[in-house]
C-alpha cells in the first residue's frame, strides 16, 4: 500500500446507497472499509467486487449504535490501514408507522442507528482526523428530514437531527481542516424504497420535477465530490440529490 493511499469508511455499505458509495470510492482509488451489521454475505460481495477491479477493501461488522463496537471497528481499521481520510455515515434503518401506532422500540431503533450512530462514529473518527489535521465527514440524511412524511416521524426526526449535527460539527472541526457535510437523497431506487406501495410511488413521481427516481450512483457521485479536493471550501451544507423534489 502506497503512503498516499487514502482510506474511506462507509457505514452500512453492504447494500443500497452505501454499497454504491463504497464502489464509487474504490473507483477513485481509495482503500474502502465496508461496514455492515447483518448482511455479511452482501458485504463480502462488495469487497470481492472491489478486489476484482484491483482495489483494496475489507468488511468489518459493527453495530454503529454501540460505542464498544464502533471503537473495535476503528481499531481494526487503523491496524489495517493506519489512517482514515473520509467517514461516510450512511447506516440507516426504517421502522415506519403512524405515530398512534409507533412503538417505543421502533422509535428507539431508528434514533439509535440513524442519529446516535452518526454521533458515535463521528466522535471516534474525528479524534483521529484531528490529529491528522485533515479529514472529511459526509452524513447521509434525507429529504424526509426536511419535508417530513406521514408514517415516518421517527425517521424524519433522526434525519433532521443529522442536519443539525452536521452544521454543529462543521463549526467545531473547521479549524482542524475537517469538513462536515450532508447529502439528502430523495426517492432513490433501493431495497428501502422497494418496500413502499406502488400507489405511493406513483404519487411521489408527480412531485419530482425530473420525473424519475434516482439511482444509488447519483448519490454516490455527490458523496465522492464532498470528499474530494474540489469541495475544500464547502462545509456545514446539506446537498439534495432528489431530482428537484425539494428546493431550499
Amino acid at each position: 500500500m502506497g503512503v498516499d493511499q487514502r482510506v474511506v469508511l462507509v457505514t452500512g455499505a453492504s447494500r443500497g446507497i452505501g454499497r454504491a458509495v463504497a464502489l464509487r470510492f474504490a473507483e477513485e482509488g481509495y482503500a474502502v472499509v465496508v461496514n455492515y451489521m447483518g448482511n455479511e454475505e452482501k458485504a463480502r460481495e462488495v469487497v470481492e467486487q472491489i478486489e476484482a477491479k484491483g482495489g483494496q477493501a475489507i468488511a468489518i461488522k459493527a453495530d454503529v449504535s454501540k460505542q464498544e463496537e464502533v471503537e473495535a471497528l476503528l481499531q481494526e481499521l487503523l491496524n489495517r490501514f493506519g489512517r482514515i481520510d473520509v467517514l461516510v455515515n450512511n447506516a440507516g434503518i426504517t421502522r415506519d408507522n403512524l405515530l398512534m401506532r409507533l412503538k417505543e422500540n421502533d422509535w428507539d431503533a431508528v434514533m439509535n442507528t440513524n442519529l446516535k450512530g452518526v454521533y458515535l462514529c463521528s466522535k471516534a473518527i474525528a479524534k483521529v482526523m484531528m490529529k491528522q489535521r485533515q479529514g472529511r465527514i459526509v452524513n447521509l440524511t434525507s429529504v424526509i428530514g426536511q419535508i417530513g412524511n406521514a408514517g415516518q416521524s421517527n425517521y424524519a426526526a433522526a434525519k433532521a437531527g443529522v442536519i443539525g449535527f452536521t452544521k454543529s460539527l462543521a463549526r467545531e472541526l473547521a479549524s482542524r481542516n475537517i469538513t462536515v457535510n450532508a447529502v439528502a437523497p430523495g426517492f432513490i431506487v433501493t431495497d428501502m424504497t422497494d418496500k413502499l406501495p406502488e400507489e405511493l410511488r406513483n404519487n411521489m413521481i408527480q412531485a419530482i420535477p425530473l420525473s424519475r427516481f434516482g439511482q444509488p450512483e447519483d448519490v454516490a457521485n455527490v458523496v465522492v465530490f464532498l470528499a474530494s479536493e474540489q469541495s475544500a471550501y464547502i462545509t456545514g451544507q446539506t446537498i439534495n440529490v432528489d431530482g428537484g423534489m425539494v428546493m431550499a
Binding site: 479524534k127 484531528m130 490529529k131 467545531e172 472541526l173 479549524s175 482542524r176
Partner: peptide, 11 residues
C-alpha cells in the same frame, strides 16, 4: 489555545 486545542491537550 482555543477550546478544541485544550480538549486535544487533555486527550
Amino acid at each position: 489555545a482555543d477550546s478544541l486545542d485544550v480538549v486535544e491537550l487533555v486527550m
